[in-house]
């Protein structure tokens, strides 16, 4: 299939809060005397998806799959190489300074590391209220009130406003990060591995909280993670990434019950299940994810795929609908 040049026409009224089309992000590797670009790390290599209002889309993949780069590009924390993204029909990548400022209210991010993502010199009140201040919301007194309410909403005490991040446990810090993300009443929250650094008993508290907040504030989530059981618990649909591409996208239950892409199948088959009575056939993939600097020709997964043929090296499989609502990028799915 030839690469179609998608017209950057804004999608209208199809219920998508976020639409991403042919997103590409290459990181150049400079070298030589003149520091010219000698190669590219093809971190995101043509990714398209939509998230409906109120939906949670899980984005799962191993290290180097490009999932976090997708999240950061949508946030415009890093510029895309090409492709488009729209928030309710408005282009995110073409937005000028003022428009972008507005959009930043509507899209917020929660980070993985509750230790590194909070400024240790700022009080909790300053951290949570910073966005309000930047966007000129209310008076100082009103902002304090909002911050206290936000802290209560995420299960902390309003009086904690004056304390500093080091006084809190990992789970509490993640709650502070969530309160900060909520402050400007965003429409979309991008959660980048929000529970990966937390212990199991704390993880379930945070996952439940995210679910409660979604109902209460009508939120839409892009939930980026590497743990399939966690992603399944929170997601309506799941997109599986491998080496810069989405290889499968389906409703969560369907993906787990009947995966169609060989990578998804193998991935699910080797996730350790906390039940010693479960006996199942495991597909242990050999080798490792190839370097994104020089991905294999054709299908990116073919070098580790148990069913790859010569055809897979020649022709890249498009992401196509293999059953209702389920998309897989495999010639044999």
């Amino acid at each position: 299939m030839s690469k179609q040049k998608q017209r950057a026409a804004a999608p209208q009224a199809n219920g998508a809060l976020l639409k991403v089309q042919d997103l590409v992000k290459f990181f150049p590797i400079k070298g030589g005397l003149l520091q010219q670009t000698v190669a590219n790390v093809r971190a995101v290599d043509g990714v398209s998806f939509e998230i409906k209002k109120g939906e949670t889309l899980g984005l799962i993949g191993e290290s180097g799959s490009g999932k976090s780069t997708v999240a950061r590009t949508i946030m415009r924390l890093i510029p895309p190489t090409s492709g488009e993204a729209w928030l309710e029909g408005r282009s995110i990548f073409k937005a000028k300074k003022k428009e972008l400022h507005e959009m930043r209210r509507e899209v917020q991010i929660i980070f993985q590391d509750p230790y590194g993502s909070l400024n240790p010199r700022m009080s909790v009140g300053e951290i949570v209220g910073e966005g309000l201040l930047v966007h000129g919301v209310g008076s100082a007194h009103e902002r304090d009130k909002i911050v206290s309410e936000l802290l209560e909403v995420v299960g902390l005490r309003g009086q904690y406003r004056g304390r500093f991040p080091h006084e809190f446990s990992g789970g509490q810090r993640q709650r502070i990060g969530i309160a900060r993300a909520l402050a400007l009443r965003p429409k979309l929250i991008i959660a980048d591995e929000p529970v990966s650094a937390l212990d199991v008993s704390i993880q379930s508290q945070i996952l439940n909280l995210l679910e409660d907040l979604q109902n209460e504030f009508d939120l839409t989530y892009l939930f980026v993670a590497h743990n399939m059981a966690v992603v399944e618990q929170v997601s309506d649909r799941i997109a599986v990434m491998y080496l810069g591409k989405i290889v499968e996208l389906a409703p969560a239950e369907q993906l787990l019950r009947s995966p169609r892409h060989p990578y998804t199948k193998a991935l699910i088959s080797v996730i350790p299940i906390p039940d010693p009575t479960v006996r199942r056939e495991q597909t242990v993939l050999s080798g490792e994810i190839p370097s994104p600097t020089n991905p294999p020709s054709g299908c990116h997964f073919r070098t580790r795929c148990p069913i790859a043929t010569d055809y897979c090296a020649e022709v890249e499989p498009p992401l196509r609908e293999v059953s209702k609502g389920q998309f897989a990028a495999c010639h044999y799915a």
Partner: peptide, 18 residues
């Protein structure tokens, strides 16, 4: 409190506190 693969729960069990 662990999420179970292929068995999405209505709500996860929680151990309160830390």
């Amino acid at each position: 409190s662990i999420p179970r693969l292929g068995k999405k729960q209505e709500r996860l069990h929680v151990i309160t506190g830390s």
